[in-house]
Design a protein around this nucleic acid. Structure first.
Lengths: 235, 235
DNA sequence: AGTTACTATACAACTAGACAAATCATTACC
DNA sequence: GGTAATGATTTGTCTAGTTGTATAGTAACT
């Protein structure tokens, strides 16, 4: 009975280093070659250990770059009011947003339907990346009706925050009407942006938010890195 | 009881080869398959012979790699001043060091405590293997406060000696404040590095060394191969 | 019949080396 | 100032060889 497997004791040792705080979330581990030398084993044996830890979600490797300690899953509450910055700051983490695109185009069928617009009406589209402590948490795409929010693109470029930008356009509050959830596998592009491995699980939400006058103002898609967040649904 | 057991005569033959100097300490024996062919027996019969020799401490096998001839023990004094090279040269043996890792990371709780640092402060870590006549004697891990010794990693990479490296960083002397001793069993990775069998006894020392200003400069762990060294404690 | 020494085979675990693919840092260039 | 090219580094994958372990079988001796 092989209670002794070299790669297992290596995985155990590395897991201990992470647990004791020697390597914190997001830190880069030494290269496979270095670790192989340190433990006195072949690189493949280290790889076997990393593979195990990767499957358990403890680390995450990127070809050409290295192995990194996975960050602890962030708790992300979903309720009537979803405010990215407030949510994360409440959890004691440093929120940030990276803008990927802000553009205006005509709505497709689903978007028009969700926002109660004529097919082909103009919409503003906001795409970006949400980060916590520098780690990518989620990819999002928000679609807004252009006719009712003329100055939105400029407001978004100025303040990245959706809440702020809407405020500047006269929408002082908004609440979720519906949120739908599905599990997906990351596409190569999504994996790259979220810095997770290709084919890792992703949590996708599709939501519609309403202005105080009960008219839809935002149709949003969000793709969360599955192993970095836990979504909490509040009534 | 057959006094002419096949595996015994094979062990005898191999033992003779070692005694006659045909295979010196550290040399690799032919593969099991080769020897099986040469002696005209099954591989298991050769294995039985090697197993016996391994229990007697004559050889030491490594999976995936081969069987190697073992070597003889060394005496190692421990006092207020512990200087690896001087100790071994005095015993007429050829000292050497193999660097396994030099890295800078954040200290865990014990390391911070021993070096009187804030938890999570940066430390330099030096891991390596001490050899005498090419045979591994001890594994060590030394932890140094990074803020007071900025250039230490480069110095260590240049001259593997701790005494020299500290000197280059302005610490011209250091003495042991404390040394704690325990007996342990070798972990699989330790056994590999020290080239002893898995679960063999190991002598572990934990020490703190002080600079002339009485501040701690080194927090060191050393794991000695139990059957290759005798530690001598001097007042 | 039961034990012992050995054979035969198969597979798991690890080593060794080579090469491909992605990344990163630097340099050169416009 | 950006960007294209380049070279070194690092992870991913593949093939092959070696020791470790397990199971089953055979022959000889008690």
């Amino acid at each position: 009975m092989p209670r002794n497997a070299l790669w297992k004791s290596i995985a155990q040792s590395l897991t201990g280093d992470i647990a004791s705080g020697r390597y914190g979330p997001g830190d880069k581990l030494p290269t496979e070659a270095e670790m192989a030398a340190r433990f006195g084993v072949n690189r493949h044996t280290v790889r076997r250990a990393l593979q195990d830890m990767s499957e358990k979600g403890l680390v995450h490797t990127r070809r050409g770059s290295g192995a990194f300690v996975a960050s602890k899953p962030t708790d992300y509450p979903i309720g009537r009011r979803v405010r990215f910055h407030q949510n994360l700051r409440a959890a004691g983490r440093m929120p940030a947003k990276e803008v990927l695109a802000v553009e205006t185009r005509s709505a497709d069928a689903r978007e028009a339907d969700a926002l109660a617009l004529e097919p082909g009406a103009a919409v503003h589209v906001y795409e970006g990346l949400s980060l916590a402590d520098g780690q990518p948490i989620a990819l999002f795409r928000s679609v807004f009706p252009a006719d009712r929010l003329p100055g939105l693109p400029e407001a978004l470029r100025a303040h990245k925050s959706v809440t702020r930008a809407l405020e500047m356009c006269g929408v002082h509050d908004y609440t979720r009407q519906s949120t739908r959830l599905t599990a997906k596998l990351a596409s190569p592009t999504q994996a790259l942006l979220l810095r997770i491995s290709d084919g890792a699980p992703i949590l996708r939400t599709i939501s519609v938010s309403l202005a105080p006058d009960n008219r839809p103002v935002e149709y949003g898609h969000t793709w969360f890195a599955g192993d970095r967040v836990t979504l909490t649904v509040e009534p």
